[in-house]
């Protein structure tokens, strides 16, 4: 059986990289207080998480040496997920009439308004 012997040295580098990225993601969160990206903190955290996930998938899970059909198995659900999330996040801001409060509108105010509507 032909297969690749994977280099143990690269695993150690990946481990260190994952550790460093974990420290960065903690420091970059507004809760730790070292750097506050405000409204972008979600995006920053998700980008760092995706880099970490990519390192794990490509190196630890050997995607690097996998054939095309395995890559399709990986990319397909990710594409589906992006489609679904895009649909949800595009649709969500227009949902004010069906229970979702307007961004910026007080939850209590929406409640009150609805209660008046029912009585």
């Amino acid at each position: 059986m032909a297969h690749d012997t994977h280099d143990d040295g690269i695993y150690l580098k990946i481990l260190v990289a994952l550790g460093v990225l974990t420290v960065i993601t903690v420091l970059a969160s507004s809760k730790a207080g070292f750097a506050d990206f405000g409204t972008w903190s979600l995006a920053v955290a998700m980008i760092i998480a995706s880099v970490k996930a990519g390192l794990v998938a490509v190196h630890f899970m050997h995607l690097k040496t996998e054939r095309l059909d395995t890559w399709i198995y990986v990319i397909f659900p990710v594409v589906l997920l992006v489609l679904m999330m895009a649909g949800v996040f595009i649709d969500n801001p227009f949902r004010t009439g069906t229970g979702q409060p307007d961004p910026g509108v007080e939850v209590a105010a929406v409640e009150k308004h609805d209660n008046h509507g029912h009585h």
Partner: peptide, 10 residues
């Protein structure tokens, strides 16, 4: 890796 920032940090 995704759960940690989503639940704890953001």
């Amino acid at each position: 890796i995704y759960l940690f920032p989503l639940l704890y940090l953001i």
